[in-house]
């Protein structure tokens, strides 16, 4: 058994193409999934049992079935209801659907961790529920959201490897193609694993910066808040 990376020389473009598609698919799933996740979290927090039950069913179902099966359900289910989509689009939607359940849980937990009085006071001074969410709740939960969300995004990016099973030409699919052409599993999977690893490290680093920025921005926004400033200056004057 010799390790000969030169074998892969002709195949690097193919692998990089696959990696680029993996990044694209994950990015789209992140955006769509987060939007859906926030919507589901709002449902879960609504008063009344019906929206809460619906959101609970959505979250529990998606969290308890393997993603590889979800992908097949979406892939075969869409044509069933008359919608024909290319595998890449269907795969991205399935990935977004999968990750939305986890994002919903993250958002819900972050909002529940905030003292209830925050929302209630905002309502009491005449804000609508949407205004209260946007101006009072959202800025405060932002910092709590970043670490679990980036963690989940990392998991989602890794799960996108499963898209290879419905012939989406992303990194894992290309690795199987290259493996079929070269019969050099060691080299191929070493290369592919390294690419995934690299993407993961980049996401982790990005999240660390985002965390620092959001944390800093939040402290700044508290300082810059006119009401807080007035209060702080009053305190200062009294002392």
């Amino acid at each position: 058994m010799h390790f000969n990376p030169a074998l892969l020389f002709d195949y690097w473009p193919l692998l990089l193409q696959g990696a680029w598609l993996t990044v694209q698919v994950s990015a789209f799933a992140l955006v769509i999934g987060y939007a859906a996740g926030v919507a589901v979290a709002m449902f879960a927090l609504m008063p009344g049992w019906l929206p809460r039950l619906a959101a609970g069913l959505y979250i529990e179902t998606l969290r308890n079935i393997p993603f590889i099966i979800l992908i097949f359900v979406v892939y075969y289910g869409l044509p069933f209801s008359g919608i024909r989509l290319p595998a890449t689009v269907a795969g991205t939607l399935a990935l977004a659907l999968f990750v939305s359940a986890y994002y919903a849980e993250i958002v819900r937990a972050a909002i529940l961790a905030l003292p209830r009085g925050q929302f209630e006071s905002a309502r009491a001074i005449g804000m609508s529920p949407v205004q209260a969410m946007r101006h009072v709740v959202a800025p405060q939960i932002l910092r709590a959201l970043v670490p679990p969300s980036t963690n989940m995004t990392l998991t989602m990016m890794k799960e996108s490897a499963v898209l290879s099973s419905i012939t989406v030409p992303e990194l894992t699919y290309q690795s199987l193609v290259v493996q079929g052409n070269t019969f050099a599993p060691f080299e191929v999977f070493a290369a592919v694993a390294s690419i995934y690893w690299l993407i993961a490290i980049v996401i982790a680093e990005f999240s660390r910066r985002l965390e620092r920025r959001v944390g800093a921005a939040q402290i700044e926004s508290i300082n810059r808040n006119p009401i807080a400033e007035r209060y702080l200056s009053l305190v200062a004057r009294r002392a």
């Binding site: 599993p185 690893w197 490290i201």
Partner: peptide
Amino acid sequence: RGTPLLIQIFIAYYVLPAVG
């Protein structure tokens, strides 16, 4: 933690036989 489980399964299935 940085690579997909699917790739780890492929490594066990395709690479381990190559090293005996």
